[in-house]
Amino acid sequence: MLIKTIRDFFYDRDVTEVTTPALVSSPITDVHIDSIGVRVNEGLGKADALYLHTSPEIEMKRLLAKGSGDIFQICSVYRDNEYGERNFNEFGMLEYYRLDFDMHQLMSEVGELVNALGDSRPVIKMSYSEAFTRYVGIDILQTDLDTLKIFAGSHGLSDDFHWIEDLQMLLFVHFVEPKLRQHPICFIYDFPSQQAALAQVENRVAHRFELYLDGVEVANGYQELQSAEDYRERFQLELNKRQALEKPLMALDEQFLADLSAPLPFCSGVAIGIERLLLKMCL
């Protein structure tokens, strides 16, 4: 019933439903997301390694580059090394892209979707920087790694970090997330540039957002990078971190980069964890 509401929401807005392959030839480079590999065609003597998609992002961006226009997809995604009460190796994802939307327009629409699903509580937006000022008392965009380490140590938290983004995330999880329960539907936006992932960076902040429902991360969205060069640079950053952590390395997805010879149109996209989204709707 709620899935039908989601579909209706997008059909009413002329967003096209698509299905992309779940078995892909290149694993994701994200340092903290592990793909599940599968071997196929061994019986044919043509053994090949494929990977279950960890999100349909790359395949959907191929469609966007080919001129698909606004698209959405509801599918299962698979991730290795997930554990905890809210993390699973397989979960449902709603992913969608809107042409000519900036990050704020997309956040507003996601808020409307949450309301359309029956959660009529107020939607608030808070920048990452404002959340840190309010709940931690530090200017997160201006504080360097060494100063953050001293701050973490003074609160009895680990200061064993090589990358500032990992320590920023620890402080966010420890100090900010629990406070977000006061704001049942809360968007956090404009992340530090070190946490840009695949979002556009402007004036030292990444146009990336997350949605928190009752303090639980439910969605992650970007004002999307457009050029192949930008994607190559961001993928390489993740590979460098993988190398430093001695995690499995993979070749860059050259086919995807080639498909971006015509860059992505200006657009914003978001991935929403369906179980986490609907769990809150059923309360």
Binding site: H32, E82, G84, E85, N87, D166, V173
Partner: peptide, 24 residues
């Protein structure tokens, strides 16, 4: 913990979508 014996009352695993896992 900080020199004193402590008992775990609640253990919550939080894995940011783009980050490493933490135990709160």
């Amino acid at each position: 913990l900080e020199g004193n014996p402590c008992s775990i009352v609640n253990n919550e695993i939080v894995k940011p979508g783009k980050g490493q896992a933490f135990n709160r």
